[in-house]
């Protein structure tokens, strides 16, 4: 009894001693609750026939409660958006996940320090260009007739295809411009892992007669695997969420067949079409799939390699 009392006393003492801390965390906590947790509660409009005038609470429940999910599953956009989202995220995973690793291994092999610094500065540079400008550059360089690529085709005596208006070319354009923009920047985290390698390991390997390739294979690669797995898990948790900004900019009427993805669809039916409940249902569906994927991949990785994100 006494013990409990004194325990409570120290707790109260700590609380009053640390009043300042509660004061400091208040602003961020308020923002978190208002702009992150309140919308999470607002997700229930996916199960309601939401009307702006009635508000979230007073709008009637939809009948059946999964009406808007059913609407999505039976919509012709269901297959298209999910397929497009997955095609682009998986393609981009296959390409833009390994390339920074290879690039980091190459940078790690460079000896001339000044050249290495310049190389890094330049490869990081595109990362700082805005999406709008990158898509603007794509449009100018690939535009049919006047663009650089189109000129190249004509120089070789071929008819230039309309790349920007081609549904087939969309995913390549999207993924490879991503690589162009971010591959250099994405090496930083691997270079951090590589820089923590004890140099005596390389010396020992040289004495044993290991070639440069063998050093990469047996020292560098094992060193970056934990980092790579952590990033891979996070990427898998995002398979269903493809960023809105770039896809939306790259969309045009001609490539819509392969460029309409979940996030752009949610935007169009929700904000442009004012179907608030339906849009929320589609959004919620993809968020949940992401969460399940993340937990699954994390579990598998924990079992297989002891690497986990928490």
């Amino acid at each position: 009894m006494n013990h409990v009392k004194s325990n409570l006393k120290t707790k109260i003492k700590r609380l009053s001693e640390n009043r300042g801390l509660y004061f400091l965390i208040l602003p961020s906590l308020i923002l978190l609750i208002v702009f992150y947790y309140r919308p999470m509660y607002g997700v229930i409009i996916a199960f309601k026939d939401y009307k702006l005038s009635a508000g979230i609470l007073d709008s009637p429940w939809s009948d059946p409660w999964y009406k808007y999910f059913l609407k999505f599953f039976s919509s012709y956009q269901f297959q298209t958006t999910i397929k497009n989202t997955l095609v682009i995220t998986i393609y981009s995973l296959l390409v833009s996940f390994p390339i920074p690793i290879l690039l980091a291994l190459i940078i790690n092999q460079m000896r001339a320090t000044r050249y290495k610094k310049i190389f890094q500065t330049i490869t990081y540079m595109p990362h700082f260009i805005s999406v709008v400008v990158v898509v603007g550059m794509i449009n100018l360089i690939f535009s049919s007739g006047t663009g650089l690529v189109s000129q190249l085709f004509q120089m070789m005596g071929m008819d230039a295809p309309n790349i920007l208006g081609s549904a087939k070319a969309f995913k390549h354009l999207y993924v490879w411009s991503e690589v162009w923009q971010h591959a250099g920047w994405d090496t930083i985290i691997y270079l951090a892992a590589l820089s923590s390698i004890d140099p005596s390991l390389y010396e020992a390997a040289s004495i044993d007669g290991a070639s440069s390739m063998q050093k990469i294979r047996f020292i560098d690669i094992p060193m970056i695997i934990p980092t790579a797995i952590t990033l891979l898990i996070l990427r898998c948790g995002g398979l269903m969420s493809l960023g809105f900004e770039k896809v939306y900019l790259m969309q045009n009427n001609l490539n819509l067949l392969s460029s309409e993805v979940i996030s752009t669809y949610v935007y169009k039916i929700g904000l442009l079409g004012s179907q608030f409940s339906y849009s929320s249902a589609v959004n919620l569906f993809s968020t949940l799939i992401n969460l399940v994927l993340l937990l699954m991949v994390n579990k598998i990785s924990k079992r297989m390699s002891d690497t986990s994100i928490w």
């Binding site: 309140r38 919308p39 999470m40 509660y41 997700v43 409009i45 702006l52 959004n283 969460l291």
Partner: peptide, 13 residues
Amino acid sequence: FFNGGLIPTFVTV
């Protein structure tokens, strides 16, 4: 890892 999504956030704002 989880958020309310576009529309609920828009309504809140």
